[in-house]
Design a protein around this nucleic acid. Structure first.
Lengths: 228, 228
DNA sequence: TTGCTGCCCGACCGAACATTCGGTTAGCGT
DNA sequence: ACGCTAACCGAATGTTCGGTCGGGCAGCAA
């Protein structure tokens, strides 16, 4: 088959699905309520699938072709919804960051001391991480190679600083132990929280409250059996 | 400077380093004890640099050209030392895994109970992670895209299982709290340990014993100020 | 029927990718 | 002085990358 430059699509062979994905079944409409009978993606549903693939193979390790195969549409169709690969990443990590910052801005009882606010923040962060697991996972694996990634890293640093400040207040009021540097505490604390993305799966039979309780118990009261 | 096909290295312009890396200084011989006066890489020193770059940009996000630039040699020269990109990864994660398994096989006092052995394992894992930081970092970010990565993931699972078994024993003998599932404990525990790669840097003024103490104190005794 | 719009397609593009190749060079042993 | 070899090089390989292009087609409004 010689290349014919400047030529369009050859007439589609009828009764034969095109190149992509053998045995593919037409997915249900991702935009219910809109017009029926035609199967389409919108930005959100597209990002949802993209993030899943990014988390499996890594952002850099995922090609647009693989992505298209998993979506069940062609590569070029992706560009109808988003401007490119980087925007997919941007939308995903943006969603994760918005959710995490929302936790920090929660009222959580207006008269609570810093220690209670810290414990609240830890528990709500666990819940948010579980609720937005794929998006947070992608966020926490960003390297900073592109501009979108650098922006994400910047916002993550902001988040970390606000948490560190909270720990500092809790240490100052005597709520958490003073024999460990507050900066070190906040790193260990949110290191533990963030490490959940490495193994927690919502369908694994472990409820989010149980998880949040277990984590909070470990970091605040310790694993060792208490005296008495 | 026109390309001269079939011609070898052009005579180096004196007083001017070639194309790569402005201000690069000739590195000291990486294989001391071998013949001197010629600057060369061996596999270990090459892997060391490669791992550093992989950790900055991600394995998939790093091109052999970028790697060559950072090494100060040409792309093709890399293939004189290793068979390809994948072997670099294999050597690096192999080193990390060997170091981690060595911890599990340490005697650690032949008559100690499981709880003491667990605490020993946690502390030594922190030390090993710090000592082999770049290699462990790369290991913990592997995705399983290639065969080398799949092998690494398999060995990681082995490690996790052996740790989980240790936690189970410690829980059975009553050394750690029984109100949290031992499987969950081991995930939280080593999630915390592994999260160190995200922020710990050996030149950051935080000593390894201090770090190990702080981590062990948090997970075993808790952050909350004890009564009394 | 016609024309418009949203969604989609196959074919294609330049750039970057990992890898290969023929050949040069530096420093050792002899 | 000479030959050997580890170490290196520039130029090219074929492949895959993210992205573009012009057009097809369903559904709707006129």
């Amino acid at each position: 088959m010689p290349a014919r430059p400047g030529t369009g699509r050859p007439p589609a062979v009828p009764g034969r699905t095109p190149c992509h994905s053998e045995g593919m079944i037409r997915r249900p409409d991702r935009n219910p309520g809109a017009r029926q009978g035609r199967t389409t993606y919108d930005r959100d549903s597209l990002v949802e699938v993209a993030v899943a693939v990014f988390n499996e193979r890594g952002y850099d390790g995922t090609g647009m072709e693989e992505l298209a195969r998993r979506l069940g549409i062609s590569k070029s169709s992706i560009y109808h919804h988003v401007s490119g690969k980087e925007e997919l990443l941007d939308l995903a990590v943006g969603r994760a960051l918005d959710a995490l910052f929302a936790v920090l801005d929660e009222p959580c009882g207006d008269h609570a001391d810093a220690t209670a606010r810290l414990e609240h923040t830890v528990r709500r962060s666990v819940e948010t991480l579980a609720a937005e697991l794929p998006y947070v996972t992608l966020l926490l694996r960003v390297h900073g190679n592109s501009e979108a990634e650098k922006r994400a890293l910047e916002r993550r640093r902001d988040f970390d600083h606000r948490v560190a400040e909270l720990v500092r207040q809790a240490a100052a009021e005597g709520g958490v132990r003073g024999d460990i540097d507050p900066g070190l505490i906040s790193r260990l604390l949110f290191g533990t929280v963030n490490s959940l993305i490495e193994w927690y799966r919502p369908d694994g039979g472990l409820s989010v409250p149980t998880l949040a309780d277990a984590l909070a118990t470990m970091v605040f009261d310790g694993l060792r059996v208490q005296r008495g």
